[in-house]
Design a protein around this nucleic acid. Structure first.
Lengths: 220, 220
DNA sequence: CCATCGCTAAGGGTTGACCCCGATTGTGGG
DNA sequence: CCCACAATCGGGGTCAACCCTTAGCGATGG
């Protein structure tokens, strides 16, 4: 089925698992490197441009997602096959949205994994069978908003007081002043005050810009 | 692999193709019926509740999409495997959005089709290998290509005139009435008219809800 | 030929969003 | 003890958003 062995790079923070996978795949693929943390993985992947990257999803420092994003912004042609113990929808969808071409769980058997790698190398999309269904479900329903970064690290957010942020989030969700007032049990005038303060501090001029600002920063 | 044969219903307007598929699958699945047009297909599928419906996409009177929608609104548990000559993104995405669990092209070979049917019956999602990639692309990018055929995808959009849709999209992007008026070179009052019409037709009450409505449907 | 529909536009009205000007409390820090 | 600041309101104002109604004008279709 495969004229040449696929050149595979593996990213996983557990040495035991790396060893296990290598043993399973020995002879069927060509391992060209491995990494156990995010930063090193990104550099080595860019440098060696493997056919397929076997990517563990759950790792320190941002996990597989950080690796994916770090690599894709520099070379979008790298094909990732996510390999995870998790079958949670958030994980799968986040990884796919970030650009991975496949996602299989670690319950996969050796031969299947080999096939999955080969198909990924050939440009196909590969999923654990049970997984494929709800990826489609997410697509059908249009499930977007997955909060990946609740960013505490935003200097612009820092100038806002807690109450202002609270009001900001309600504004961004489309609530009217009256609704916000009721919900926070304060007067409309107070809501106005907070909104004015937020608009001034962020140098915006109306609630639509505020909505965009908030969605860009994933505050919803 | 399959303890029992899958009970299959086939919808295709070409008798020749139906015969061909039946010959290919003879002995591997149990055919419990077939139909060559939309209305009859819906009734028979509801009545016989097959494990899998093999569905031709391009047919008179609305095609496979009409069958899908007609059946799903009465019994959402029916599993559809779309079978089509087309590998166009609009077709695939429309069918998936309507609730099909798989999509394969007619270039598929007999054994693969049997496997696809069995996997569909088992609840998996099945795609022609070359197809899976761009379905994921559409998912990743937020399905931009849906703009090309909005009417096929959304009955609510159907009630809107082209001009109304144009205005709707600008509203959803946060433009003010004045800005929209300038951009479309019409008067503010006309913009108001269109917006009012849109709000009334969609049974919404303000522009924020409109924005949410539009983003949910990926009109941006 | 008339009816319908899409697009255009206006008049006139209510409400909400946003601004500027205040003011009062409570809290923590120098 | 006073100052700064977060949080709470109010008055009074402008303009945008939205509603309802009416209406001309061109194209389409029975």
């Amino acid at each position: 089925m495969s004229p040449e062995k696929a050149r595979v790079f593996m990213v996983d923070d557990h040495a035991l698992i790396r060893a296990g996978i290598k043993a399973e795949l020995a002879g069927s693929v060509e391992f060209i490197g491995e990494a156990d943390e995010v930063a090193a993985a990104i550099e080595m992947i860019i440098e060696r441009s493997p056919d397929v990257v076997l990517l563990d999803v759950h790792m320190p420092d941002g996990g597989g997602l950080a690796v994916l994003e770090g690599v894709v912004e520099r070379d979008a042609s790298v094909k990732f096959l996510a390999l995870s113990v998790s079958d949670a929808a958030e994980d799968v969808i986040a990884i796919i949205r970030a650009g991975a071409r496949g996602y299989v769980t670690k319950s996969i058997e050796g031969p299947e994994l080999i096939e999955a790698i080969e198909r990924t190398a050939a440009g196909d999309a590969v999923f654990s069978r049970r997984l494929a269904g709800f990826v489609l479900d997410a697509f059908t329903k249009g499930a977007d908003q997955l909060h990946t970064t609740p960013s505490m690290l935003d200097p612009e957010l820092d100038q806002l007081t807690p109450r202002e942020i609270e009001v900001l989030r309600l504004i961004a969700r489309g609530y009217s002043y009256r609704e916000i007032a009721t919900q926070l049990d304060i007067s409309i005038k107070t809501v106005e005050s907070h909104v004015s303060a937020v608009l001034r501090k962020l140098q915006l001029s109306n609630r639509h810009q505020l909505t965009n600002w908030a969605t860009e920063r994933r505050l919803l």
